[in-house]
């Protein structure tokens, strides 16, 4: 349903108001955004409702989506098997649209820890996690995650024993990656809905782990 309430009282997915950009002096690049958008509408390439729908779609995506996939994989061994074999089609079973990008799900085990990065730009599993955090797009993360992943993990508060193998995945082409984090042993009695709440964004990028409760 089309609507156009994208003004400054609209709340972001994190529940905060959008930055108050509407009242600040117009920048050159904002001027360009308005102009390009209006030209595209005038040329009949996009419609205004279509642009708003696209924003709503992106806003509707958040790490809760990834967490739903992870919790199902923890509860259902057959689903987990399908997820590791073909991430996109398994996620689509839960009604998550992965689109043209393919999804590779990599599993953390007591002996293996996976970490996701895109050194060339900022490829990220947007369809399951929403827009990437700012740090994911920084020079510092992109440069260092592939060369000194253990030091990077320490900066994120994750300390691994030397015996744990670190596998870094650089999203260089058409694949997108999601980490299937290790399920804490103390959660054995928890329901799927309860488990979803434990799964953090960072645990699905690999810069976090899920602590025992």
């Amino acid at each position: 349903m089309p609507h156009d309430h994208h003004d400054h009282d609209h709340l972001s997915p994190s529940g905060h108001p959008y930055r108050q950009d509407n009242d600040e002096p117009l920048t050159y690049w904002q001027l360009m955004e308005i102009s390009v958008r209006e030209l595209m509408i005038e040329k009949g390439k996009f419609s205004a409702p279509e642009i708003n729908q696209q924003i709503d779609l992106m806003d509707s995506r958040s790490p809760a989506d990834g967490a739903t996939v992870v919790a199902r994989a923890w509860m259902d061994p057959d689903f987990k098997k399908r997820l590791l074999e073909n991430g996109a089609s398994a996620a689509e079973e839960l009604d998550f649209e992965i689109g043209p990008m393919h999804l590779v799900v990599v599993e953390n085990t007591p002996k293996i820890h996976n970490l996701i990065v895109c050194t060339l730009c900022s490829c990220y599993p947007r369809n399951l996690l929403g827009l990437p955090p700012d740090w994911y797009k920084t020079k510092e993360y992109r440069s260092r995650a592939v060369k000194e992943p253990r030091t990077v993990l320490t900066e994120f508060g994750v300390s691994l024993p030397e015996s744990t193998v670190v596998r870094v995945h650089d999203s260089t082409a058409d694949m997108r990656y999601l980490v299937l984090p290790l399920r804490p042993e103390s959660t054995a009695e928890m329901s799927e809905v309860e488990l979803r709440k434990l799964v953090s964004r960072d645990s699905m990028i690999g810069t976090g782990v899920i602590q025992e409760i």
């Binding site: 994208h6 003004d7 400054h8 609209h10 972001s12 994190s14 905060h16 108001p17 959008y18 930055r19 950009d21 509407n22 904002q30 955004e33 308005i34 924003i55 827009l131 955090p133 700012d134 740090w135 920084t138 510092e140 993360y141 260092r144 990077v152 900066e155 994120f156």
Partner: peptide, 11 residues
């Protein structure tokens, strides 16, 4: 790595 985060502006 700077972990500060900003909410995206509508533009």
């Amino acid at each position: 790595i700077d972990k500060a985060q900003h909410d995206f502006a509508i533009w």
